[in-house]
Design a protein around this nucleic acid. Structure first.
Length: 324
DNA sequence: CATCAGGGCCCTG
DNA sequence: CAGGGCCCTGAT
């Protein structure tokens, strides 16, 4: 069933300068799904958005400049919008896309980095943004586990087609990831039929924990990285790599560089050393030494930059490493 | 045709 | 703390 969101309301948000619209609202290292959760074109961005149990369509348009940023935001719903909702939406959007984050200190550090300064300069004002709720990001991180990109896409598409919400706003179609209760009710066999394999039991248990209210995303947002990591690692199906993704993307801990997966290690080796394979422990040590509390953010800039380049130029070694 | 590792994690010993 | 097993797929 297609849900049409006819009501709309617009407002303006002014991020803290400097701000980079495209770098913040589009991450080319993230691979797209057939059933689209979002859409980007230069200066424009759309996505489905859950706030509590209410579903919105979100459109954000660039109306400013790097030094004087402004975002024109339109939210779409199928019921009228109240003024306190707008307030909550503004706060949530600011959190997810780090619109109020002060990058002064990071930019100062970047300036001292002779080798990569051109990249940091090109993307100045880019945020470590995540459009998702914790639960949604967890779903995505789990379909990434022990699978190649194509299979991850297949798994997410199958799950969306069965449990997701198909929606229509601003003359475009999108999908939203289901709420936890929907997967909790499904049988493990139903999930397995979608060819997600052993992840079925992860999803069952996690969805139950979330819909029972055992995990409070807002409380976790207030915790230190160390405390948040410990709680996340207790979740069923969450290990070091999934925790890293959650800590960095959902909770914006920009110093989360304590786990390097083998495939990432190969790409880092090329980016930072121009070599095929440098030991993960060496990479960790060097990055932490150079970028300190901004380790993951600095790597994020360099990482996304090479995936932006990939849009226009063929990078042979990268194509081999990402194995679609 | 079979075998295998993959954008990990759980469980066991 | 090491190592086997896990779902399914495309590569070899």
């Amino acid at each position: 069933m297609l849900i049409r969101l006819f009501h709309s309301h617009s407002f303006t948000i002014r991020p803290l300068p400097p701000f980079h619209f495209d770098g913040t609202f589009h991450k080319p290292s993230h691979f797209p799904n057939k059933l689209q959760l979002d859409r980007w074109e230069p200066g424009k961005y759309w996505q489905s958005l859950w706030l509590g149990k209410k579903l919105y369509g979100l459109k954000i348009v660039d109306r400013g400049a790097t030094a004087k940023p402004a975002l024109r935001v339109t939210v779409y719903t199928n019921t009228a919008i109240k003024s306190d909702e707008i307030k909550r939406l503004k706060r949530e959007i600011a959190w997810r896309f780090e619109l109020d984050t002060d990058l002064k200190e990071f930019n100062r550090l970047a300036k001292k980095d002779k080798r990569f300064f051109p990249i940091f300069k090109k993307w100045i004002g880019m945020r470590n943004a995540s459009q998702y709720t914790l639960y949604e990001l967890l779903v995505i991180a789990i379909v990434l586990q022990n699978a190649t990109v194509r299979r991850s896409q297949q798994m997410l598409d199958a799950l969306l087609a069965k449990f997701g919400t198909h929606m229509f706003f601003d003359r475009k179609e999108f999908w939203a990831i289901w709420l936890p209760a929907a997967l909790q009710r499904a049988s493990e066999q139903t999930l397995r039929n979608l060819k997600i394999g052993y992840r079925a039991k992860f999803f069952k248990r996690l969805s139950k924990d979330f819909s029972d209210g055992k995990i409070d995303e807002h409380r976790l947002r207030g915790l230190s990285k160390k405390d948040a990591k410990e709680e996340l690692m207790h979740l069923y199906g969450v290990g070091p790599e999934t925790a890293r993704i959650l800590l960095f993307e959902a909770f914006h801990h920009v110093d989360t560089f304590d786990h390097v997966a083998p495939w990432q290690g190969k790409i880092y080796s090329r980016l930072f050393y121009g070599k095929k394979a440098v030991a993960a422990s060496q990479i960790r040590k060097d990055i932490l030494k150079r970028y300190g509390t901004y380790s993951m953010l600095a790597v994020h800039y360099i990482w996304e930059d090479v995936f932006w380049r990939r849009k226009n130029e063929h990078i042979e070694w990268l194509e081999r490493e990402i194995r679609l």
